[in-house]
């Protein structure tokens, strides 16, 4: 865990990603301090361009775009991290159990994992969400969590298979440690980078998919979120009437959050897999040795 955090601080991609994420989180938390407008209320004339009064203009029905943007960040972050956590917990648990237990357990879990992987995700979510009706962000997060763990389970299982062969696992087995203890305290800590990549990847996936589902008209119209902003703007033909601020604002917000999280993800990948690192390799190598990670 420690080299991971130390590595994150040293990595330039991680730093930029962290700053982007931090800014968005701060804006989301401080939303009521940054705007006096209620994001759901009509506070101006329809489709006004950006002005001193409405920093990012107004929507088709006269809501303040800036207020909707910063309150919407809360929804995206909550769905992203909530669903991301659920996906990661399910995927990691199933992957470790399948990889460590082997035999019939592994066969059953792997069969289901592979099955979920070949049923296309978005079409499945569309069917689920359309039957649920106007899905609130919470419902979207839950169905995302329950349907999207397969990739993580597969990767974690593969990694568990190799960790399982290590001596310290063998010796823990010899000492008669219970299986759950070996899985949680011997194997899991050695998978932390895979779990980290899985988690950040799932957060990105959840944010993108929530926005997509809402854009396609499956969200709850009362929700204030970036996906609903896109849906309403598209329905009001914002682009063809020239109200670019209405549609491009949530676009750039989603892009920025996506890029920030991806930078973090690539950084974790590089730290976990030193071969992927670029730049001055000698300097990095010697600093690795100093921190005790590499070997001479």
């Amino acid at each position: 865990m420690k080299p991971l955090i130390a590595g994150l601080v040293r990595n330039r991609k991680a730093l930029v990603g962290m700053i982007i994420l931090l800014i968005i989180v701060l804006i989301a938390v401080a939303a009521p301090l940054l705007t006096g407008y209620n994001p759901a209320a009509r506070v101006g004339r329809p489709h006004q361009p950006p002005s001193a009064e409405h920093w990012l203009g107004t929507t088709r029905i006269g809501q303040d775009v800036f207020a909707r943007l910063i309150y919407g960040a809360r929804t995206s972050l909550a769905v992203g991290f909530g669903a991301g956590l659920l996906i990661t917990v399910l995927g990691t648990a199933l992957g470790i159990i399948a990889g460590y237990r082997g035999g019939k357990t592994d066969e059953i879990i792997s069969f289901f994992t592979n099955m979920v992987l070949v049923v296309p995700n978005l079409p499945l979510l569309l069917v689920l969400a359309s039957f649920i009706g106007q899905a609130s962000p919470m419902v979207i997060a839950i169905i995302l969590g329950l349907t999207s763990w397969a990739w993580g389970a597969r990767v974690t299982r593969a990694e568990t298979l190799s960790v399982k062969q290590k001596d310290f696992v063998k010796s823990a087995e010899m000492m008669g440690e219970p299986r759950w203890r070996i899985m949680t305290f011997e194997i899991f800590p050695n998978l932390i980078s895979i779990v980290g990549i899985n988690f950040i990847g799932s957060v990105i996936f959840a944010i993108i998919t929530e926005a997509t589902l809402e854009f396609l008209g499956l969200g709850d119209p009362k929700t204030v979120s970036w996906g609903m902003m896109l849906y309403n703007a598209q329905k009001a033909s914002a682009l063809s009437v020239g109200a670019w601020w209405d549609i491009l604002t949530p676009c750039f917000a989603l892009a920025l959050l996506g890029v920030g999280l991806s930078l973090l993800n690539f950084a974790v990948d590089e730290i976990a897999n030193p071969r992927l690192r670029t730049g001055n390799s000698m300097k990095r190598w010697s600093s690795l040795i100093r921190s005790g990670e590499g070997r001479l």
Binding site: I208, T212, L248, C251
Partner: peptide, 11 residues
């Protein structure tokens, strides 16, 4: 890869 397809399409 990190920008949603909706966003890329709209832009």
């Amino acid at each position: 890869t990190s920008v949603p397809a909706v966003v890329t399409s709209l832009i």
